[in-house]
Amino acid sequence: MPGQLPLPWAPESPTPEEDARLRAAYSALQPHGVAMFGPSRVVLAPDAAPALARCYNTPLHPDDTWVVTLPKSGEETGRGTTWTQELVWLLLNDCDFTGARTMLMPDRWHFHDIQVITTADTRAAVRAAPGTPSSRIFFEPIEARPRPWFVKTHLPLHMCPPRLIDTCKVIYVARNPKDMCVSFFHHQHLFRKAAPSLGMEEFVDLFIDGLTVSLPYFPHVLEAWKQRHHPNMLFLFFEDLKKDLRGSIIKVAEFLGKPTTEKQLDELEQHLHFRNLKDNPWVNWEWLSSSVWSVGQNRKFMRKGQTGDWKNHFTRESDRKIETWMKKELQNTDLTFVTDIPEGQQ
Rank of each mutant, 00 (worst) to 15 (best):
E286G: 07
F111T: 02
K304Q: 14
P156Q: 07
I165L: 13
P106S: 08
Y172H: 15
H112D: 09
V173H: 04
S214H: 05
T65S: 05
F207K: 09
A53E: 10
W282S: 09
G3A: 14
Y26H: 07
K178Q: 09
N284I: 00
G38M: 13
P11S: 06
E267R: 04
G296L: 05
V151M: 03
M326A: 10
E18S: 08
V88L: 05
L288A: 03
R54V: 13
V221E: 11
M302F: 15
S134D: 15
K72H: 12
V116D: 04
F238V: 07
K226T: 07
M326D: 00
T324Q: 13
F274Y: 08
S135C: 08
A125E: 13
A28E: 02
L22A: 08
F207M: 11
A10F: 02
E286L: 06
F274W: 04
W282Y: 15
D94I: 00
D279R: 09
L335F: 09
H230Q: 12
L288V: 00
V295M: 10
R54C: 12
V221W: 14
P231N: 11
T69W: 08
Q4N: 05
T65E: 01
G210M: 10
K242T: 14
I322M: 15
S197A: 15
F184T: 08
L256Y: 15
H220S: 02
F237G: 04
K278H: 13
P106E: 01
T324P: 02
A35L: 07
I165M: 12
L5C: 03
P6R: 07
P14G: 08
L222N: 06
G296K: 10
D279L: 11
L211H: 09
A45D: 13
F203S: 02
D47C: 04
D244L: 13
S73I: 07
L198A: 04
S197Y: 00
I322A: 14
N276I: 01
G210I: 02
P281L: 09
P130S: 07
R299S: 11
I117F: 11
R275A: 14
Y56T: 01
H110F: 15
R101G: 04
P11V: 03
P8E: 05
T336V: 01
K169W: 00
Y56W: 07
F255L: 06
P106V: 03
C95D: 07
E202A: 14
P162Q: 06
H271R: 14
V295Y: 03
G74E: 02
E317F: 10
E143S: 14
Q331K: 14
C95Y: 08
A35K: 06
P219S: 02
D205Y: 06
T315H: 13
I250H: 14
D266Y: 00
R136K: 13
V295K: 08
D244Q: 11
E262D: 12
S290L: 01
V252K: 07
G3V: 12
T77V: 01
S289T: 04
K258N: 14
F150H: 07
H61E: 15
C95A: 14
P219A: 01
P14R: 09
Y217A: 07
L157A: 09
S135R: 06
T132P: 00
R127H: 13
A144S: 15
L277M: 12
R23P: 04
S183T: 02
K169M: 01
